[in-house]
Structure formats: C-alpha cells, structure tokens
C-alpha cells in the first residue's frame, strides 16, 4: 500500500514537472514567434515610433480640444490606449498565425490542448504591450512636455499593469472570436476602437451616456478612473478591483470560447477555422 502511494506520488510529481516544462516551452515559443514576426530592428524602427506618434497625436488632440488640462487628461488615457496594440491586435495574431500556417490541426491532436497553448503564447504579447506602454509613457511625456504628469504616474504604474492584464484578457477573448471567422482584422480593430472610444481615455466620462455604459465592461475604464483618482489624492482600490473583475470576466470568456472552438473543430473537422 505504502509502495503504491509512493509510486502515485512520484508519477504525480513527474506529470507536474512535465506540465511545467510544457508551459515554459509554450511561453518560450510565444516569444520566439513574436521575435520572428517583429525583429528588434522592426520594433525599434516602426512599432515603437508608430505608438509614440499615436500617443503624441492623442495628447495634442486633447490640447486642441480643451487646452493644457485636455492635454494632461489625454496623456493619462493615451498611455493606456497604447496597450491595445499588443494586448488586442497582437494577441489576436496568436491563433490567427496558426490559421494562416495551417497548423491548428496539430494543436488539436497535441498533448497540450489549444486553449493553454494560446494562453501561454499570449504572454509574449502581454509583455510586449507593457514595454510599449512604458516607451510611450516616457517618449510621449517628454515630447509633449507632460513630464510632471509622467513622474506622477510612475508610482501608479502597477495600476497600468493591472490594466495591461485585463486588456490582454480581452485580447484573448477577441482572438477567440477571430478563430472561427475570416474577419480578424475587423474584429480586433473593432474592439480596439471601442476601447479607445468608450473607456474614458480621451473622452471624459459623462460626455455621452452610451459610451459610459459600454465602457463599464471594457478593460481600461475602471483602471483609468483609479489612476485619475489617485493622481488627485482620492481612493483608487475599489476601481482597481473592478478592473481585475472585468479582466477575469474576459479571461473566462476567452477560455470558454477557445474550448468551444476546439470542440467544434474536432466535431466538424473545420480545422482551417471556417
């Protein structure tokens, strides 16, 4: 009896170690895939400058609309919207790459099901989105003369990281929608623009009720309320918890949708994602 328990414990340990090894390999593959599609030279020469210009554009638009206060308001929000590039558009590419390469069939029959594979590969996009946000925070802050706000935001970066996590969770859910359709570009752009429009990053909450209502279930909205409140010395914890809740909701949705897509593909043989 004792020998049997010891064998089971050893087997469980081996399985755990193997799962850990697989997880590390999947995450590592995600980074390799990211670097293959976006080599450092391309990141430095195109992706970062594009995001910096985008952030500067939003800040200057805020200035044109509402003067210095408008610029500061837009700067705080534009930093968060920079996360949409890696968190939503990049994340959508995770399953879409398999779609184009015709390798989804292999994932379906692999030892690790597609859902954890996509979640693991998404870590690279999440990391890239956080780095991109930090680049925009510093570069756009200096270019637009928002360095005081930039310095004030540094202690609040953990809230932005929470926003990045919830954004990536929403990105994964968006990616799962892209699996079954050939409209991935419209789907991830649609969610990106919805976040930019409704999360209170560039249009102050209360301007148009419909935008606020949609924003409640979108990433960024609650996190930004927390950041703005913390900047004014007000409470922020409740809003951060709401942001976490929104992120978990999107993550659960992503999990269910990926599972459903995989089950459907196994049942119908629609391996090329319709």
């Amino acid at each position: 009896m004792a020998a049997s328990t010891s064998t089971e414990a050893t087997l469980a340990g081996v399985r755990r170690a193997e799962r850990l090894w697989r997880s590390r390999q999947i995450i590592r593959f995600g980074f390799l895939q990211y670097l293959s599609a976006n080599p450092p030279a391309i990141v430095l020469a195109t992706i970062w400058p594009r995001l910096i210009f985008q952030t500067v554009f939003w800040v200057m638009l805020g200035y044109v609309a509402a003067g210095s206060d408008g610029a500061t308001f837009a700067y705080v929000g534009a930093i968060a919207t920079a996360l949409t590039y890696g968190g939503i558009a990049g994340m959508s590419d995770v399953p879409v790459d398999d779609k184009f390469a015709g390798t989804y069939t292999r994932l379906l029959v692999g030892a690790t099901p597609p859902t954890p594979v996509f979640f693991g590969r998404g870590v690279a996009q999440l990391t890239a989105s956080v780095v991109e946000m930090l680049v925009c925070l510093v570069a756009a802050g200096l270019v637009t003369g928002q360095w005081r706000t930039m310095l004030a935001l540094i202690p609040l970066l953990p809230i932005y990281v929470v926003i990045a996590l919830s954004m990536s969770a929403a990105g994964l859910a968006c990616a799962s929608f892209c699996v079954g359709k050939r409209a991935e570009v419209a789907i991830y752009n649609g969610l990106t623009y919805l976040v930019i429009l409704c999360c209170g990053a560039l249009i102050p909450p209360g301007t148009l009720a419909a935008l606020d209502v949609i924003g409640v279930v979108l990433p960024v909205s609650h996190g930004l309320v927390a950041v703005r409140s913390a900047l004014d010395g007000g409470p922020w914890l409740a809003q951060v918890l709401l942001e976490v809740l929104v992120g978990l909701g999107w993550l659960a949705l992503a999990y269910v949708l990926f599972q459903v897509q995989a089950a459907r593909s196994r049942r119908t043989g629609s391996d090329s994602f319709s």
């Binding site: 419209a186 560039l202 249009i203």
Partner: peptide, 19 residues
C-alpha cells in the same frame, strides 16, 4: 471596414465631443 467605418466614427467623436 476598420479604416473607413470604425476610424472616422472614433476620430470624429474624440475630436468633436470634448470640444
């Protein structure tokens, strides 16, 4: 669709609403 439908709506709202 993304460029000619989503983008003009978002740009217009972001520029006009706070003004």
């Amino acid at each position: 669709i993304a460029v000619t439908v989503f983008q003009p709506i978002v740009f217009l709202l972001i520029t006009l609403l706070p003004s």
